Simulated assay, not measured.
Amino acid sequence: MNILKILNNNVAVTHDKMGQEIIVMGKGIAYQKKVGDSLDQQSIDKIYSLSNKDAFVKFQELLSEIPIDYFEVADQIINYAKLTLGKKLNESIYISLSDHIFSTISRYKEGISLRNALLWDIKRFYADEFQIGLKALQFIKESFDIQFPEDEAGFLALHIVNAETPQETQDIYRVTKIIQEISDIVRYFFQMEFDEQSVAFFRFVTHLKFFAQRLISGNLHESESDTDLLDVIKEKHPNSYQCVGKIETYIKNNYQYNLTNEEKLYLTVHIQRVVHKTNS
C-alpha cells in the first residue's frame, strides 16, 4: 500500500487490492511520510471504504480537521448500533456522528450546553435508538471523561434514526415534531395517556411516521378512497372521527394540506385502536 494522500499523522488515503481508494487509520501511520511512501500494514487499526464518492470526499475533509479520537468513538457507537439494531446504516453517519461529537465536546469546553426540546418524544417514538444514545454516552465518558445528560443521548439517537432512512437529520426533527403534535391532539381530545407498550400504539406511531414523511417530502396521496367506507367508519367510531377532524384542521392551518378521505379513514381506524387498547 502506497500513500495517495496524507490527511494527518494518523490518517492516509491509499488503494486496496482491488484498486479502490480507501482511508486507513492508525496511530502515527503517516508520521514523517510523504505521498508515494509505503504504509506499514501492521500499523493500520481501521480501514474505511465508502462507496458514495461525495461522502468519501467529505469524510477525508473531516478527517483532516479533527482528531482521530472522535472518529474512534463514533465508530464504536456505529458498530454497537448496527449490532443492536441488526441492520445496515447509511455511510453518511461516519461523517455526521463524528462531526456532531466533536462539535458537542467543543461547545462543552466553552461552557455551552443545548437542551433537547424533543427528548420526551424521542424516548417514546425512537426507543431503541434512544437506548443506543444512552450507551453512546458511556462510550464518550470512557473516551473523553465527560458525562453528558440525556439530552445528548436524544441528539445522538436522531443521528442513528437518520442513518436508518435516506432523510436528512432536519427532516427527522420535523417528522418527530409532527408525530408529537398529532399525538398530543389525540391525547388531549380523549383526556388519556397512551399505553406505549401496546402493539396498537406502535402501529399508530408507525402510521404517523409515514404520514409525516410524506407530508414534509410533498409525496402525499392524490387518490380518494371509497366515500361510502369512510361514512361507515365515521358512523361506527364517531369520537375517533371527530378527533381526526381536529387533526385535519391543525394540519391545514399549519402545513397547508387537506387530508384526503383515505388519510382520514386510516387515521380514524388507528386512533380507535389505540384509544380502545389504552382504555381497556
Rank of each mutant, 00 (worst) to 15 (best):
A12C: 02
Y266S: 11
K264H: 15
D171Y: 02
K34F: 05
L39D: 07
S43Q: 10
Q76R: 02
Y80F: 15
N239I: 07
I185G: 03
N219W: 04
K33W: 04
S280V: 12
R107E: 07
V186L: 01
L267W: 10
I3V: 13
L134I: 14
M1G: 03
E193G: 15
L7Q: 01
E152V: 09
F71K: 00
D151W: 06
L89T: 13
I22F: 02
H100Y: 14
N162L: 06
A127G: 04
D226M: 05
Q138R: 00
A30F: 06
L267S: 00
F211P: 06
K264V: 13
I122W: 10
L137Q: 08
Q147A: 12
I251F: 03
D69E: 11
N52Q: 09
V11G: 05
E168C: 05
F155E: 03
V161C: 11
E224M: 03
S38M: 06
N261G: 12
S217A: 10
K123S: 11
D69C: 00
I6H: 10
K82M: 07
W120L: 10
A12D: 07
V205M: 07
Q76F: 04
V199F: 15
P67R: 09
E129M: 00
A212N: 10
N253S: 12
G19E: 12
L259T: 06
G86S: 13
T206S: 15
D45Q: 09
V11S: 08
Q20L: 15
I95T: 01
T249Y: 11
E21V: 00
I140R: 04
T169C: 10
S198L: 11
D171W: 08
I185R: 05
Y108F: 15
S198E: 05
Q41Y: 01
L89A: 08
F125L: 09
T249K: 15
G154Q: 06
M1T: 08
K17N: 14
A163I: 02
A55Y: 11
K277F: 13
I172C: 05
E248G: 07
L83P: 02
Q191F: 06
V161K: 07
I185K: 09
R174A: 01
T260D: 02
A200M: 04
S183F: 02
L230I: 09
